[in-house]
Amino acid sequence: MSGELIVFIVLAIISVAAATGLLTSRNAVYAALFLIINFATVAVMYLMLNAPFLAIIQISVYAGAIMVLFLFVIMLLGAERLNGEVLSKDLKWQRPLAGGLGVLLLIQAAYVFVSRFGASPVAPDLIKSGPMEIGMKLFNSYLLPFEVTSVLLLVAIIGAVVLTREK
């Protein structure tokens, strides 16, 4: 077993454990912290997958901005207690069905991914993916999506401001 595989296995275990924690925790703050751990492990995997730029962005966007926002809102609303997770009567059948379908989806996805793509070897000539290369790609091939994204963010800003403004 190569060193990378060992690292991967450790990370994967942490990652799945954190996701399980997210799913089962009764406290929103804990859930958020589990999710952060999950994101951090994924960030490390990005490093292993030759995407250092994305790894850093993952930390600063997901951990540094998105999850802080989640925590902030949870704390602000005092909504961390998730007791009384009782389903409405209409939705009793929901949980087992969701679980079953989820497992089905997992099997499908694993089958498709591994059978279709997983076997192909990794391309030997790895491109550099530093900020320079990402930037060149972003502002050449992906200029339109980039601009559209900026508009999307603007819309999100306006939406958030309008929604939370006191009447």
């Binding site: 250092p52 850093i56 600063s60 540094g64 901005a65 530093g130």
Partner: peptide, 13 residues
């Protein structure tokens, strides 16, 4: 080569 980004990421957490 992404030192500045690293710093921003760490400061943000």
């Amino acid at each position: 080569n992404i030192g500045v980004l690293y710093i921003l990421a760490i400061l943000s957490i």
